[in-house]
Design a protein around this nucleic acid. Structure first.
Lengths: 105, 105
DNA sequence: TTTGACTTGTCAATAAGTGTCAAATGTAAT
DNA sequence: ATTACATTTGACACTTATTGACAAGTCAAA
């Protein structure tokens, strides 16, 4: 039996990466950003590394604080969700394309 | 305050629709299909109407039983997941496109 | 070695998902 | 109208996932 140690598994988070990048460029501390969202610093740390998800409001507040585009942040957030939804399924691309077609109607 | 009655909310399920369509064309009963998957008929009914999700194995077994394309069923299943992941977010399309781009690398 | 930033693991509480059962509804034939 | 059977519905017990909080850990610079 092959088990995956989920506690150590770290998923990709394009939004997380972007947040960290942006935050560091502005010399803001995790602590400060976390305080602005009124969440624990640990949560912020995990969010930036894709270990925890933020909710929509958090993402919007972050965009404001970091003077970034809300639309970009939200679409990165959705992007992460989509990637998580399809996992590493070999038909992932096919499924996403199908969804895109359907959703456009 | 506006509350959504989740118990009555029915999400779209393109896979569910396809399953029902295919099943009926072959004059199979929910009961029979359910038996083949070794699940309750009620679950099958809900799955076809998008009230419950099937797992990957169920989807594959269904494709076989219904003599349909496994790839098509799986990608419809993923498609449903993607659509669920983005919900009705106004930036859904943008997010999905971004995911598609990222995942292609 | 102390400080400060960040990370990690654990925990309890809550939410969400899963499959099943029994009862309800719908429908077609008798 | 009654029966027979397919499907749907709501409730339920059970499992698994997610959440936010906390304490302890690492790590680098002073």
């Amino acid at each position: 039996m092959t088990l995956i140690d989920k506690s150590k598994y770290r998923k990709v988070s394009y939004l997380g990466q972007k947040i960290r990048e942006t935050r560091e460029k502005q010399n803001l501390l995790l602590r400060q950003v976390a305080a602005h969202l009124e969440v624990d610093t640990a949560l912020m740390s995990k969010a930036e590394r894709g270990e925890r998800n933020l909710n929509r409001d958090h993402v919007l507040k972050l965009a404001q604080l970091l003077k970034a585009s809300e639309d970009e942040f939200i679409s990165l957030w959705l992007c992460d969700k989509v990637i998580e939804a399809v996992g590493d399924d070999p038909l992932a691309v096919k499924g996403i394309k199908k969804a895109l077609r359907k959703i456009k109607n």
